[in-house]
């Protein structure tokens, strides 16, 4: 019984691990970020979006790096979210 449960657990874990499509995207924003206040504003907007794992907004690098679950959100959705607070976001190549 124990082995059976372990097997199920292992399967479920493997499936979820495979199912999750974790991606990283880096945006540049317009208007550019000037300081930590702009960084905070961006973080506060994005943190409530679905599928967000990690946000790093840096005025110094002029980059917003987001780790997200591609099954739950997309770069387009994230850009729309940033648009709501007045930032036009472009994917940094």
């Amino acid at each position: 019984m124990k082995k059976f449960l372990l097997l199920i657990a292992a399967t479920v874990m493997t499936v979820t691990a495979y199912a999750k499509d974790i991606k990283t995207v880096t945006f540049t924003v317009d208007p550019p970020m000037h300081c930590e206040k702009c960084e905070a504003r961006i973080k506060n907007q994005l943190k409530f979006e679905k599928g967000i794992k990690k946000i790093d907004a840096s005025a110094e690098k002029q980059a917003v790096t987001i780790v997200y679950d591609a099954d739950k959100t997309s770069t387009a959705k994230l850009a729309v979210s940033l648009k709501k607070i007045g930032y036009a976001a472009k994917v940094k190549k």
Partner: peptide
């Protein structure tokens, strides 16, 4: 037109 920023 909106102006924004922060106060520290």
């Amino acid at each position: 037109v909106k102006v924004r920023g922060g106060v520290t």
